[in-house]
Amino acid sequence: MTSPAPIVRQDSRIQRFFLRHEWARGYALLSPTLAVMVLAMCLPVFMLAAHSFWTQNYLTIDETFTLANYEQALGWLWGAEGAKPIYIRLLWKSMQISFGVTVTTLILAYPFAYFLAFKVRRNKNLWIILISVPFLTSYLLRVFTWKIILGFNGVINSGLMSLGIISEPLEFLLYNPTAVLIVLAHAWAAFAILPIYVSLEKIDRSLLEAATDLGDGPFRRFWRITWPLSVPGVIASGLLVFIPTVGDYVTPKLVGGTEGIMIGNIIQSQFGKANNWPLGSALSIVMAIAITIVVLIFLYVMSLGRVRAK
C-alpha cells in the first residue's frame, strides 16, 4: 500500500506556528527593535533604579536597601533632618526655565509652521531642509556660537558699543537663566516646528473656506478653526521641548553661570566630581517622575478643556 505523494508541500511546525498566530509574527517582526530597546533603555533605567536604593562608600557601593538617597533629595519637603532644599528648589527652577523655553519655542515655531503650511506653495521640502541645517553642526558648537553672540566682548556688545548706543558691555546677556532660555529655545525651535507644521498641513482647506463662506474674517477663522485643529500639534511640540529640556545640563553649564544652574548639572556632578551615583540615580528618578506627573496633569487639563468645548 503506497500513499499518494503529497501535492501540497507541508509547512514545518515553526512555519505553521507563525501562520496560525498573528501576535507571534508581530513580535518576530519587532524583535530586533525590541532587543535594542530592552538593552539600551530598560537596562539603564533598571540599573538607575537599583542604584538609587544603594549607598556610596567612597569607592565602593554598599548594596543594602535604603531610602536615604530619596530622603536626601526630597526630605526637605517633610522637614527631614539634614535634608537640604537645594534639590527641590533646583528641580522647581528647572521646570520653570523649561516651561519658559517651551512657551518661547512655541511662540517662535507656530508662526513659522503656519507660514510653511499655508503660504509656501513651492519648494516646501527645501524649506524643511533649511530648518534642519543648524543640526548639521554639533549642539556644543551651537551653544558656543551663542556665547560669542551674547558674551562680554561678543557680537551684540561690540556691535552696540561701536554704534555708540552703550558705553560699557551689557553684563546681563550671558551667564543667567535668560541666556539658558534663549539658547535652549533656539536649539529646540526646529523640533517644535515640525509637529505644528504637520497638524496645520493636515487641515482640510475646504474647512477654512467653509468658515469664510459662513461669515468669518481671517482672524475669527483662525481662532475658530485653525487654532483648535492645530492644538494637538502644539501639545506634541510642547512636550517634545519640555520633557528633554528639564534635564539638560550642557547649556546651563556653558551659558547659565551660577544663576542658571539646573537640576541636570547637579545630577551630572553626582555621577562625576561628587562621585555619588546612588544620589544621582535617586535625583534622576525623582526628576523623571516629576516630569511625568506634570505632563499627566497637563494632558488631563487639556482633555477637560476639549470635552467642555464640545
Partner: peptide, 12 residues
C-alpha cells in the same frame, strides 16, 4: 453660501 463637495463639516 456654499455646500462643499467634501461637505467640510468642522471636525472639532
Amino acid at each position: 453660501n456654499m455646500v462643499f463637495q467634501s461637505y467640510a463639516i468642522f471636525p472639532h
